[in-house]
Design a protein around this nucleic acid. Structure first.
Lengths: 347, 347
DNA sequence: TTGAAAGCGCTAACAG
DNA sequence: CTGTTAGCGCTTTCAA
C-alpha cells in the first residue's frame, strides 16, 4: 500500500482533488454525506497530508536546524535537550547536525540547512572555525535572510542574535573564589585555548589576579592539545611547588587532573584546590567531589530556541540581542572553605 | 535580499526558467556565454536550489528520522552519535526527536516524521510505550511503507529491521561472572523493569542461577520506580546479609548504589560486588571504579543507520533482519578477581 | 455543492 | 541553443 495522496482519494470517489481537500478540512462547502465518506476512507487508509508539499506551499517548514560541535560533550547535550524541549513545545521539530569541531563539516552542514529545509538555525561554532576565524558560510546565511542564533562559541563578525555564557565573569569569579579560600598561586588548564570561551575565561582570571595585585605568569596557563599527555603537563606544572589552585576549563580535564594529582599523592584540596568548568555528571561522583562552574546548558538551549522562534514568527525587524547567561559556582569538596571577608558568589 | 529562485535569475536575464536550470547544471545545450553569465550571477547572489522543491520532485528527502527516549542518557547519546556519523557519511541528514519516555510524545513524533519529511526512521521505544505495549502508530508507518529500524527497546509486534543488544546473554554472562568471582547471592537493581531490555537481563540472570543450581529468589529483584528512594530499597535489600553481589541495570543506579553502600560502610567489592550496565562516563571515575557491561552504543547506531539506508536505497524486498550485538564486560575494581576454572568472558 | 486553475520551486521530456 | 509543458502534492481563489 503506497502512500495515499489526495489524488488517490479523489479518483477513488470520482470527485476532484480540491473537493477532497475541502472535505478533509471539514469545509462547509462540502455536503455532509461526501465529507463523511471521504473522512472515513482517509482515516481507514491512514491518510496523512504530505508535509513536503505543504512546506513548499507555505514556504516554511516549522523546523529549526541545530549544529553543535560535539554531542558527546555533556554541555552540548544539555543545550540540545533544552532546544528540543522548547522547540517542540512551540510546534517546531529539530534537524540536528554535528560539526565534529571541523570547519569543513560545519560549512557542509550550514549549506545543507540553509537550503530551505529549516526556518532558522541555532549553532555553536566548531573549534576549527573559531581558530580559522572565517565566517563566510554564515555571512551567506545572513544574506539569504535565514534567522540564526549563535550560542556559546560565537563571533563578532556576524550580526545576529546570540546567547553566551558570561565567561569573562566566570573566569573572574572563579579566580576570586579560589583566592578567597586562601589560594596563592592559581593555574589554568585548558583544552579549548583556541575558543572564544577559553580566552574570555583567561581574561577574567587575569583581571582577578590584577585586582589582587598578583602578577600574571604565562607558565600558569597550561594548554592541552589533542596529542598532549595531560599527566606530563601537570607534572611540569606542579613542579612549581607554589601552585595551590587549578582551574580546569572543561569537566573531563578537571576529573583527569584530579586523578593525576591523587596518583601523585597530592592532597586535594589541602595542597591544591581544583575548580572545573561544566557541571556535568562526573564531577559530583568523583572523590573528592569537584567544585564546578555550571553554565546552565539546558537554560541556554531554551533561551536560544525561544529567541529564534520569536524571530521566525515575528517578521518585524527587531534589533539583535545578545543574552549573557551568568554561571553558578557549585561548591563541593575539591576546594577549601571561603575565608571571611570575601563575598560569596551568588547564583 | 530574499532567497533567490530560478525565476528571479530567469527574469533578470530575460530567459526562461528551464534555461537557467540547465545553465546552472552546465548542460551542453546552453551556450557558453550564457552559462558563464548565469553561473557568475548565481554565485555572486549565493543561489541555492530549494531543497524542499527537490524533495517534492524526487519524492525523497535524504533525511532520516531518529527518535530516542532520552538524550541525557549516555547510551542513547552514543547511539545518536553513531547514527549521525554514518548517516552523514552516506549523504543523509538527521531529524532528531526525543520521546522523553512518553507514549503520547512518541506518537506525535512518529506522525510528524511519517508525513514525508524523512525517507526512513530509527527509533527506540519509550518506556511508556513498552509498558502499554500498543504499537498502532508504528503499524501505520509500516502500512505506509516507511522503512524503519528499531533498536535496543524493540517489540515483536512490529515486523521490521532491528538492532538489539544481546541482553539475555549479558544478564547471563554478568551473573556467571559474579558467581565466578565467588559471589553466593546476587541481587538485581532495576529502574527499567518495564522494558524489554530489563526483562531479558533478568531472564539471563535466572538462567545462570539455574545452571549454578541456585534458587531464584524474588526478593533479589529490586524494582526502583521514579518515586522510590533508592537508599531505602538498598537498605532493605542488604538487610539480607547474604547478599554479596549486585547487578545494577543502568549506570546511574550503579553509581548511586555504590555510593549508598559506601555510606553504609559496606566494603566494595569485598563485602558486596557491583556490576553495572552501560559503560558511560561515570563508572570509570568513581572509587572504586565500577565493573561495567558495555553495550557499544556507537556501534549500534552505525549498524542501525547502515541497515536503514541500505533498505531505503535498495528497493528490493530483502527479508527483515535482527542484529544481535554482544556486550562486553569491562572489569574494574568493584568486583573481585575471577577464581580459576571459570572461562573469562570474551569481547 | 463541486470543480478548474494557478502556483509554491524545480526538473526533464519534448518542441521549436 | 532556448522555450514550453507537465508534474511532484497540496491549498486556495474563482467559476460553474
Amino acid at each position: 500500500m503506497k502512500k495515499l495522496t489526495l489524488k488517490d482519494i479523489a479518483s477513488h470517489f470520482g470527485v476532484s482533488i480540491s473537493t477532497v481537500s475541502k472535505a478533509l478540512k471539514d469545509s462547509p462547502e462540502i455536503s455532509e454525506a461526501l465529507k463523511l465518506k471521504v473522512q472515513a476512507f482517509a482515516e481507514e487508509r491512514n491518510y496523512r497530508p504530505n508535509r513536503i508539499a505543504l512546506n513548499l506551499l507555505n514556504k516554511r517548514t516549522k523546523a529549526i536546524g541545530v549544529i553543535v560541535p560535539n554531542i558527546l560533550n555533556y554541555f552540548f547535550t544539555q543545550v540540545f535537550y533544552g532546544i528540543e524541549k522548547t522547540a517542540n513545545s512551540r510546534g517546531y521539530s529539530i534537524i540536528s547536525c554535528i560539526s565534529d569541531e571541523s570547519y569543513k563539516k560545519e560549512i557542509q552542514t550550514v549549506e545543507l540547512l540553509g537550503s530551505g529545509i529549516v526556518d532558522g538555525l541555532i549553532l555553536s561554532l566548531s573549534e576549527e572555525t573559531q581558530a580559522k576565524d572565517s565566517m563566510g558560510h554564515l555571512k551567506n546565511l545572513i544574506k539569504n535572510r535565514i534567522p540564526m542564533v549563535l550560542f556559546d562559541r560565537v563571533t563578532n563578525k556576524i550580526d545576529c542574535d546570540k546567547v553566551v555564557v558570561d565567561d569573562f565573569e566566570a573566569g573572574y569569579k572563579t579566580t576570586k573564589y579560589l583566592l578567597g579560600t586562601g589560594c596563592k598561586k592559581i593555574a589554568i588548564v585548558s583544552a579549548i585555548f583556541n575558543s572564544s570561551v577559553g580566552k574570555l575565561r583567561v581574561k577574567g582570571y587575569k583581571k582577578a589576579l590584577e585586582e589582587a595585585a598578583q602578577e600574571f605568569n604565562d607558565q600558569c596557563i597550561v594548554k592541552v592539545g589533542k596529542q598532549d599527555d595531560l599527566e606530563v603537563l601537570i607534572s611540569l606544572l606542579i613542579a612549581d611547588k607554589e601552585i595551590d589552585g587549578i582551574i580546569a576549563l572543561d569537566e573531563m580535564t578537571a576529573v583527569d587532573t584530579l586523578n593525576i594529582l591523587k596518583m601523585k599523592g597530592v592532597e586535594v584540596p589541602n595542597q591544591i584546590s581544583i575548580v572545573g568548568f561544566t557541571n556535568g555528571r562526573l564531577s559530583k561522583y568523583v572523590t573528592p567531589a569537584l567544585t564546578m562552574v555550571s553554565q546552565h546548558g539546558q537554560y541556554i538551549g531554551e533561551l536560544a530556541a525561544n529567541i529564534l522562534i520569536d524571530r521566525i514568527e515575528y517578521e518585524g525587524r527587531m534589533p539583535f540581542t545578545t543574552k549573557l547567561v551568568k554561571t553558578t559556582l557549585i561548591e563541593r569538596e575539591s576546594t577549601k572553605k571561603l575565608k571571611t571577608g570575601y563575598d560569596a558568589p551568588t547564583a
